[in-house]
Design a protein around this nucleic acid. Sequence first.
DNA 1: CCCGTGCCCTGGCGGC
DNA 2: TGCCGCCAGGGCACGG
Length: 270
Amino acid sequence: MPELPEVETIRRTLLPMVKGRVVTDVSVFYPPITPDGPDVVKDALAGRTITDVRRVGKHLVLVLGDRVLLVHFRMEGRFFIRKTTHESKHDHVAITLDGIDHLVYNDTRKFGRMLVRDNPGYMDVAPLSLLGPEPAFADPKRIWKTLRSKTIAIKTALLDQHVMAGLGNIYVDETLFASRIHPLKSSKTLTRKDVGTIVKEATRVLDEACALGGSSIRTYTDALGVHGRFQNVLNVHTKAGEPCPTCGQTIIKTVVGGRGTYVCERCQKK
DNA sequence: CCCGTGCCCTGGCGGC
DNA sequence: TGCCGCCAGGGCACGG
């Protein structure tokens, strides 16, 4: 499940492999991946050169001069560089590079999406214009004001990309554990100091995960066979039944906002 | 506007 | 061993 660190790892891996290369063809095998229609993606990419690979929240941004391709991997999307366009039944889009090989989008669950936007200007229109700041650039006071107006659980609020961008289920659990705040705590009851802690810990957790190449728990491995190592340093996520690293209390698994949630009921206060 | 629910999709797993 | 049913999960549409 690519969250910010996984997408950043994909970005770093992909950049030297695609920068400067010309897209000579685009094949779409599963059209819903391209909700505006396969032809929109084909017309935008074909004949253009990939000039950069960026990341905004969990979105990967392929820059091709005056167009960008926004890629959201959702649960299990990934890229491979392949000699064939469609060797797996989960290969849904093939972007041919220099007529030689293919940047293949593979997604078991078919949840991922690709959108075309203009460059410049793509940050000023949906979906990227709707994203909150990434934790590293967030103003805690502004986030506190946003959270204060919400009645929902803090975990649910932190998963909302309009509040802050980049956190997913894994890193929200880790952030709240590090902040010693219970995922069910109501957003509106958080103090400014609480929110300052959350923003700081979210930034640290994401930074550390990026440095380790992200996580690759469950079925997810990121682009091109690179395997993240962050799952080796998770404190609570997936740790049900194991002792809390801080106090020894058994970590429990519960459900918050429909998401599997791991928590130390002793360390994390409601 | 805000919030909760259901949907998309398929591999994996529990139950029998 | 094999089959069936159920479930996870990010983001969005929809309805109250």
